[in-house]
Simulated assay, not measured.
Amino acid sequence: MSNPVFVLLHGAWHSPKCWNRLIAQLEKSGHSAVAPALPSSGYNPPLPDWSKDVEIIRNTVTDLVQEHHVIVVTHSFSGMTGGTALEGLDKETCKSKGLKGGVVRLVYIIAFLVPERFQHSPQGTRDNMVPEMITDLDANSVTVRPEDAKAMFYQDIEDDAVAELAKDLRPQSLGAFWSTTTFAAWRYIPTTYVLCTGDKPSTVTAAQYLVDSGKASGPHKIDNLIKVDSGHSPFISNPEWTAQTLIDEAGREFQV
């Protein structure tokens, strides 16, 4: 059995570029990774909802499972879109359709692990958004200022590096925060949650709550919780550790 392919889904305000360090480490270990660009981040004009994200995630994974086993890695915001995009793409369902592959594991890196019918913010509001999320209702966008980037995303990264990373941040479509999930893939696909304890304390508390609530909400396949002393973006601050963790989690399904 060949190694599974990692599909890496970036969070809000980011681009696939944020995965570059991790991809280099995975490839060094003989693994393949795909990092699609999710249009709700940086699209101009901003999008009314997250449907384009869901479409790209679903199309990317659907193409891969024709021949490959897949591990989907979500970060932060993309836990919502990744979780809702994978209906019918689990290994068992793919096998029943005669496909060679399927999604065999999800890895949520400090991501939104949420149930069906979850909405981050009510339509037309900025409810549940932290002060660092600068909203423009007229422009349908949410931005993060460069001076807030370290506290939001890069707590354990040197200031000079943070300044460079902040240059790649882009506006996020506000409508994406008003969208509603329709599926919870973690109920059907084995799931690992990576809890980054060096993130903002409020984010750590919220993430633990989401995991606990998910487990208590009914059927689920959340079978591993990994706590790491890292900020919000361990794939940037410690790509070696992140790559090895992903490879180890893949090894829970296969010998890789």
Score class of each variant (00 low, 15 high):
residue 33 A to Y: 02
residue 33 A to S: 10
residue 33 A to C: 08
residue 34 V to F: 00
residue 34 V to Q: 08
residue 34 V to G: 12
residue 35 A to R: 03
residue 35 A to I: 02
residue 35 A to E: 07
residue 35 A to W: 03
residue 35 A to S: 01
residue 35 A to Q: 03
residue 35 A to N: 03
residue 36 P to Y: 03
residue 36 P to K: 14
residue 36 P to N: 15
residue 37 A to R: 13
residue 37 A to I: 11
residue 37 A to C: 14
residue 37 A to Y: 10
residue 38 L to P: 13
residue 39 P to E: 04
residue 39 P to W: 05
residue 40 S to R: 08
residue 40 S to C: 06
residue 40 S to W: 08
residue 40 S to D: 07
residue 40 S to G: 12
residue 41 S to N: 10
residue 41 S to W: 00
residue 41 S to C: 01
residue 41 S to H: 06
residue 41 S to M: 07
residue 41 S to K: 09
residue 42 G to P: 12
residue 42 G to T: 01
residue 42 G to Q: 02
residue 42 G to L: 00
residue 43 Y to D: 11
residue 43 Y to C: 13
residue 44 N to V: 10
residue 44 N to L: 07
residue 44 N to Y: 12
residue 44 N to F: 08
residue 45 P to G: 06
residue 45 P to K: 01
residue 45 P to I: 05
residue 45 P to V: 05
residue 45 P to Q: 02
residue 45 P to Y: 02
residue 45 P to D: 01
residue 46 P to H: 04
residue 46 P to G: 06
residue 46 P to T: 01
residue 47 L to P: 02
residue 47 L to V: 06
residue 48 P to Y: 14
residue 48 P to R: 11
residue 49 D to I: 13
residue 49 D to E: 11
residue 50 W to L: 10
residue 50 W to V: 00
residue 50 W to S: 07
residue 50 W to M: 12
residue 50 W to G: 08
residue 50 W to C: 10
residue 50 W to F: 13
residue 51 S to Q: 12
residue 53 D to I: 00
residue 53 D to H: 14
residue 53 D to E: 13
residue 54 V to S: 12
residue 54 V to N: 07
residue 54 V to K: 10
residue 54 V to E: 10
residue 55 E to K: 15
residue 55 E to Y: 00
residue 55 E to Q: 12
residue 57 I to G: 15
residue 57 I to Q: 11
residue 57 I to K: 09
residue 57 I to H: 04
residue 58 R to Y: 08
residue 58 R to G: 13
residue 58 R to I: 03
residue 58 R to W: 03
residue 59 N to T: 03
residue 59 N to P: 11
residue 60 T to D: 12
residue 60 T to N: 13
residue 60 T to V: 12
residue 60 T to Y: 07
residue 60 T to G: 14
residue 60 T to K: 09
residue 61 V to W: 04
residue 61 V to P: 08
residue 61 V to K: 03
residue 62 T to M: 04
residue 62 T to Y: 08
residue 62 T to K: 01
residue 63 D to E: 14
residue 63 D to Y: 14
residue 63 D to L: 15
residue 63 D to N: 14
residue 64 L to H: 01
residue 64 L to R: 05
residue 64 L to S: 00
residue 65 V to H: 02
residue 65 V to N: 08
residue 65 V to I: 06
residue 66 Q to S: 11
residue 66 Q to M: 09
residue 66 Q to R: 08
residue 67 E to K: 11
residue 67 E to V: 03
residue 67 E to I: 09
residue 67 E to G: 09
residue 68 H to K: 11
residue 68 H to D: 07
residue 68 H to A: 11
residue 68 H to L: 12
residue 68 H to M: 12
residue 68 H to T: 06
